[in-house]
């Protein structure tokens, strides 16, 4: 059983852990670090429920090996709220962007990754950024609206 000691930053917290080579970043977050906010919807990088921000970019945690995240910075949904709720979270809650909630963490992470780089995206840019996050409840319109309300375009 191959293992590796990895050092990474998760939600601004520096940490070291020894992980098995054959687990994904998603497994590391959920099963080892107890950060269950990031969800497993398909485990094959198609639904976006496992979206986290890795070194500033939105990625599917299920398609990244934990060992591959050695030396990286990871932001998960648990790290979005600092002293108070992030404007994205407030907007999602108030504007009806949440139904069953399973896609919500992934949606917020994809949206945050976008807004962190581009605070004023167009509707098309928002759709492109979130086109890899499936929502079966169909809350797409309200999600788009919730994000749009935070921009000045």
């Amino acid at each position: 059983m191959y293992k590796k000691l990895i050092k990474l930053q998760v939600n601004s917290e520096k940490m070291e852990c020894t992980v098995r080579n054959n687990i994904t970043l998603l497994d590391l977050l959920r099963d080892v670090l107890d950060l269950t906010g990031t969800k497993k919807g398909c485990d094959t990088g198609e639904c976006g429920a496992c979206t986290v921000i890795l070194d500033g970019k939105a990625v599917n945690a299920c398609l990244i090996l934990a060992v591959d995240a050695d030396g990286s910075e990871v932001q998960t949904i648990e790290g979005v709220r600092k002293m108070s709720l992030h404007p994205l979270q407030i907007s999602f809650i108030e504007r009806g962007a949440i139904q069953c909630g399973f896609c919500t963490p992934g949606m917020i992470m994809s949206a945050k990754a976008l807004l962190d780089r581009n605070p004023n995206p167009t509707s098309e840019e928002i759709k492109t950024a979130l086109a890899g996050n499936l929502c079966r409840c169909g809350a797409y319109n309200k999600i788009l609206y919730s994000i749009k309300c935070l921009t000045s375009k």
């Binding site: 959920r30 269950t36 906010g37 497993k40 979270q89 949440i98 909630g101 919500t104 963490p105």
Partner: peptide, 19 residues
């Protein structure tokens, strides 16, 4: 009225069976 379970869902605190 915003849904009452919005907060836990938006913060990753909501627990589903697989959690």
């Amino acid at each position: 009225i915003p849904r009452i379970d919005g907060l836990i869902k938006a913060t990753g605190m909501a627990k589903y069976v697989s959690d």
